[in-house]
Design a protein around this nucleic acid. Sequence first.
DNA 1: CTATATGCAAAAAGTTTGCATCTCC
DNA 2: GGAGATGCAAACTTTTTGCATATAG
Lengths: 122, 122
Amino acid sequence: MTGRRDDVRRALSTTDGFRSAQDIYADLRAAGSRIGLTTVYRALQVLSDSGEVDVLRTDEGEAVYRACRTDEHHHHLVCRVCGRTVEIEGPAVEKWAEAIGAEHGFRDVTHTVEVFGTCSNH
Amino acid sequence: MTGRRDDVRRALSTTDGFRSAQDIYADLRAAGSRIGLTTVYRALQVLSDSGEVDVLRTDEGEAVYRACRTDEHHHHLVCRVCGRTVEIEGPAVEKWAEAIGAEHGFRDVTHTVEVFGTCSNH
DNA sequence: CTATATGCAAAAAGTTTGCATCTCC
DNA sequence: GGAGATGCAAACTTTTTGCATATAG
């Protein structure tokens, strides 16, 4: 029965970009699944808690999810047209954030970085 | 009557951190204003369109606003305890984002960067 | 049989819209 | 009087919760 979790995981894996819970729900239903929207949300919550998927917020406030290839801390370069995503690393940014924080007397510094652009297919 | 817009601007200016529309509404009402929540939202929309205030989303999906001192592109270092905010610049990050985008064939690259930490008062 | 997972419907929370009223010119 | 601003209530969207049912072990 926990196959539902796998359904969600699979739906996420089949695409390259970030998808919203509603997108995933629509896809699964379109594919014939009888899954409920609630279950999609619950699965996404579990998956993101366990670090299996990454979550971020669109400017419209919608949460979007993506299956990540690595557990490491990393950032994303997202195509604003098709949602295609490239996982990127930026040692320079990590250091910069740390330094900026320290400079202003902040401790336990964390950061969020997202890069958007229009990819070569558009 | 457009004094309402100024009320909102003023409510934003009196604090150092990011505030939500609901916070601002509560503050103004507490201060005796008869302003409506709708008007707060409308004022914030106008102010952010004109670039007078900065908007970002919390992890919970709530929009938070802040009066910025400069029109220039910049980022924020936010205290996760008290909300105190420092405007920061990072030429290194700007260049890095551009370079990363170009490297993967992305055009019109933009980015969002937010740094969080615990400030020296905590 | 018992604990967990699921789905539906309803509830929350944040934001936007419809619309009648009010204000300034 | 007319254009734009305002406030209330209702609509909308996304996400969460309550609850009864179904499933696995």
